[in-house]
Design a protein around this nucleic acid. Structure first.
Length: 617
DNA sequence: TCCATTATGATTGTCCCT
DNA sequence: AGGGACAATCATAATGGA
């Protein structure tokens, strides 16, 4: 692993790696060890991969992350083999035992809580500080401090002795009936506070149906209350509305096949997709939002992924990130190319400002040479999303031949074929009857990167497209981050996960925010080289520390980093979209897919950073 | 081995009509 | 409500040549 470290800091941080390598041979014999292996172990296969936990560990890891005990997992695997669905069903059937619900309902609910829907009422699993043996002494002291106030961890089924070593997640069986009911309803999306109120008002014997009716009625009453401020009212017209929840529940209790019902539960995309506002459109209304107290910084955090993910994915992401409403923005409101993305962050949204100069916002302005050849029957003014692959020469040849066959305008049928392909592959007109895919430097320009940002230094043309296609649109992200400029006049310490080609760093730099310490995690070596090269070329005075694997950022390492420069001001990153993106024909497996499940590492690291920093304050 | 090239749909959502 | 047309989509894997 190559670690770049500036001279100043190299003495302050303990960069030993032996402790990580030792973990490999630990047996899966105890809760602590299992979790260490499954969730946090450094991969030992030598690849620069962020998800290269070998075979069984990966399989077990999925379920550990969900909070199941290792005994249950082992049992379920024994009975069902390594079949995710079967094992999950078995685990959930074992685990769930809701008192007010018939057994078949409880099971249905349980089965329904497939990974995609799984996160429970409190998805914020207490962070498990990596506790490989070489550092357990430190961790025990550390965690006692951090989780002093945590009353739940002491009697957890998962953690029997010194305990708070593991993710602490309560088994239903050890909860009171009341708590189980709350958990169940919270699982369905009802706010915990409202459930509590409903239980008080309806009495201890109330059925779930009564409770949901009460909550629903209360929500509708508040929604219609003209004296309540808008941001306090429940959004009944959204997917998360009480009415739909109640309907869902009632159907669930009757239905044999509840899956379809739960699949209806999705966050809806705004139209137009301008999030909480963009500089170029008139602001829809006064946007105000409330962020849960838990979500407040420090640090600020900013998470990004594709907006058009499979159903339920954003619900899950949001639940793991404090139920903050995602801000969905299409970058076509910032530049000449579309890029529909969701952002979950705890940044203020007032007084944002855009990067200057404002980038060209039409194809015409961005690519002036295409104007001469642009046929009148091609109405496009914006490009579609820049992806990781480009159209083939064969295709552009077919298009040339198709258009060439006619003197004036081709017939509608040909026009449609050509336009469909041009939209699909983002082709532009570069000559008479000639279309072509965009060049890498045009990708850079459209995405807000400096020219040649990804050029040279050993990167292939194919990889340039790939890295750029996976990147932020800088102007969009910078607009959201702009509120930080006044807050950090002396610069920031940034933890950048899945950095790619450094979209976050470039955005902050272009905002004129000084980068004091940047810890960057990126598995691709060429991408790390690009960021380091940019760092040096822009004469940064701060420190750039990079890692190749998120698994390396365990509690120890984060503690060291935070100690060495006093904490992070911003945690930013977009986790891999491979298994979420619509372009993926092969493995669009959702959030639990091979790459996209690294989202849970974002959550893990965010929780760790928050814990360590709250302890130090 | 690296790199360039190429072909490979399905899942969503929206809109419009009945 | 419901069906059908329409449109968009941070990709993967196989192949062949250098």
């Amino acid at each position: 692993m190559d670690k770049h470290l500036s001279e100043e800091d190299s003495d302050n941080i303990d960069w030993d790696t032996e402790d990580e390598l030792e973990i490999q041979d630990t047996t899966l014999s105890s809760c602590r060890d299992l979790r260490t292996n499954g969730q946090y172990a450094i991969s030992g296969d030598g690849e620069a991969s962020s998800s290269s936990v070998p075979g069984q560990s990966t399989f077990i890891q999925k379920f550990l992350v969900m909070g199941f005990s290792e005994e249950s997992i082992a049992k379920a695997i024994e009975q069902n083999g390594e079949n995710s669905d079967l094992v999950l069903d078995a685990l959930l059937t074992l685990k769930q035992n809701f008192p007010s619900c018939p057994p078949d309902i409880a099971t249905s609910q349980a089965i329904e809580d497939s990974p995609e829907e799984q996160p429970s009422a409190s998805p914020h699993l207490e962070p498990c500080i990596n506790s490989d043996d070489s550092s357990s002494e430190y961790n025990e002291n550390f965690l006692d401090d951090v989780y002093e106030e945590d009353s739940w961890s002491s009697d957890s089924d998962y953690c029997t002795n010194s305990a708070k070593q593991c993710y602490v997640k309560e088994e239903s069986s050890s909860l009171s009936e009341k708590e189980q009911t709350i958990l169940f309803l919270a699982n369905m999306g009802y706010p915990v506070e409202e459930v509590s109120i409903a239980m008080e008002r309806c009495g201890p014997e109330a059925s779930l149906a009564e409770l949901t009716d009460f909550i629903c009625a209360a929500q509708m009453a508040r929604a219609e209350d003209p004296y309540l401020p808008e941001d306090v009212k429940p959004k009944l017209n959204h997917g998360s509305g009480g009415y739909k929840k109640r309907k869902m529940f009632n159907q669930l209790c009757k239905s044999k096949k509840p899956r379809a019902i739960f699949d209806e539960e999705t966050i809806r995309l705004p139209k137009p997709m301008i999030g909480f506002g963009v500089p170029t459109e008139s602001v829809p209304a006064i946007v105000r939002r409330t962020i849960p107290e838990q979500a407040f910084g420090p640090p600020f955090f900013y998470y990004e992924n594709v907006a058009l993910a499979p159903k339920g994915v954003w619900d899950t992401i949001s639940r793991f990130l404090y139920d903050i409403e995602p801000e969905f923005v299409d970058s076509k409101y910032f530049c000449a190319t579309a890029r529909k993305r969701g952002y979950i962050h705890n940044l203020p949204i007032e007084n944002r400002f855009p990067l200057l100069p404002l980038p060209p916002r039409t194809i015409n302005e961005a690519l002036p040479l295409t104007k001469k050849w642009w046929p009148s029957w091609d109405p496009r003014t914006k490009l579609n999303c820049l992806q990781t692959a480009i159209g083939s020469a064969r295709l552009t040849d077919r298009i040339r031949k198709a258009v060439e066959a006619f003197d004036g305008e081709p017939p509608m049928r040909v026009q449609k074929f050509v336009l469909d392909q041009c939209r699909k592959w983002n082709l532009v007109w570069v000559g008479r009857n000639k279309v072509a895919p965009l060049e890498p430097d045009e990708f850079e320009m459209l995405l807000g990167f400096p020219k040649n940002h990804t050029r040279g230094g050993g990167i292939s043309r194919t990889d340039r497209y790939k890295s750029l296609g996976n990147s932020f649109q800088v102007d969009t992200v910078a607009y959201h981050l702009s509120v930080l400029k006044d807050m950090f006049p002396n610069g920031m310490n940034v933890l950048s996960l899945f950095s790619g080609i450094g979209g976050a760093e470039v955005a902050l730099y272009r905002l004129g925010i000084q980068l004091n310490n940047v810890v960057s995690v990126e598995k691709s070596e060429v991408n790390r080289n690009i960021v380091r090269s940019w760092w040096e070329q822009t004469n940064q005075r701060g420190n750039l520390i990079d890692f190749d694997d998120v698994q390396q950022l365990n509690g120890d390492r984060l503690e060291q980093l935070i100690d060495s420069f006093g904490g992070f001001d911003l945690l930013i990153g977009g986790s891999p979209c491979n298994n979420l993106a619509g372009s993926n024909r092969v493995s669009r497996d959702g959030l639990e897919g091979k790459e996209s499940s690294l989202f849970y590492d974002y959550v893990r690291i965010l929780d760790l950073v928050k814990s360590i920093m709250s302890r130090q304050r």
